[in-house]
Computed example of a mutant assay.
Amino acid sequence: VIVQGTDTLEEMAFLLDCLLDISRPVVVTGAMRNPAELSADGPANIMAAVTCAATREIGLAGVVVVFNDDIHAARFVTKSHTGNVGAFQSPNCGPIGRVVEGKAYVFAVPVAGPKVPIPQPPNIPHIAVIKASFGDDGFLLKLLENSDCQGLVIEAFGAGHLPETYLDSLDRLARKIPIILSSRAGAGHIFRQTYGYKGAEIDLIRRGLIPSGILDGLKAKILLTLLVMSGADPRSSQYWQ
């Protein structure tokens, strides 16, 4: 059982899920209320996490996050609220299980996510994340062209669409670094073959961008960082499902 603050908990859980290829339960939890507040949730979350760690079936699900008695797969969970005790949700699939009356029930075991060898020694690359926004002229992309950035994740509109103002910079950057195309929507896959206008997913893939599959921008950054560190090929589709 790993206990940590909730601000980056979803990223830590996914990082562990990418690095650990074991069948023993690994459970991450924390608290949304500090101990001085009424109805602090920390003790109950820790008890639920320990219950899960003692449940053999949890080991088949990869790293899990346990909050508010819900059991979430690390690949799908996200912090969706700043203060609610039910802040951790899995918008793509829902919880994979639940703790009830001191027992952990697993409803579904997700398909194993990508595994990356632990790089030795660690040398953390510069990976940028840019979220597309209405009226954006691509100024930040132009700055990246002259930086030592070693990879880029773009959180695009909808199913993978970007303004035409991005395209010239993306063409130049894609010749130098891996660029992962994710969505700012918070749930759903990046499309690959539905829309073909300039700046849509077919056009962007043709320009060299790599669809993130179901991973959001935060998790795509974690995975891309590990791939660059380990020397693996970030363009391999086995990592982006």
Rank of each mutant, 00 (worst) to 15 (best):
I190C: 09
G196D: 14
V129D: 02
Y166K: 01
T194S: 15
K115S: 12
G186A: 08
D203P: 08
K176F: 05
I202T: 12
G138A: 06
V106H: 00
L209Y: 08
A174Y: 00
G199Q: 05
V111R: 13
R207H: 13
V153S: 03
K142P: 00
T194N: 15
D136I: 00
A156L: 06
N123Y: 01
G138P: 03
G208S: 12
P114V: 11
R98S: 10
I190Y: 09
V109H: 00
L167M: 12
S183D: 09
E155K: 10
A132C: 14
P114L: 11
V99C: 04
D148K: 15
V129M: 13
P117G: 01
Q120W: 08
P110F: 03
I190E: 10
V111F: 05
E201F: 03
K115W: 05
Y195C: 11
S212F: 01
Q120P: 00
D137V: 13
P178R: 08
P114G: 07
A185T: 14
P121E: 04
S169I: 02
A108R: 15
P163N: 04
G138H: 01
Y105W: 10
G158F: 02
G160W: 00
L209D: 05
P163I: 03
K115Q: 11
L167I: 13
R98I: 10
R206M: 06
F191C: 10
Y166Q: 04
R206Q: 13
E201W: 04
P117I: 02
G188H: 12
D168S: 14
A200I: 02
G113V: 09
G208Q: 12
P163T: 01
I202N: 05
L162M: 07
R206G: 11
N146L: 08
D136Y: 02
H189A: 15
R207Q: 12
D148L: 12
I177Y: 10
G138T: 01
R172H: 03
G158I: 01
D148N: 15
H126Y: 05
I124M: 01
H161K: 10
P110A: 10
A185M: 14
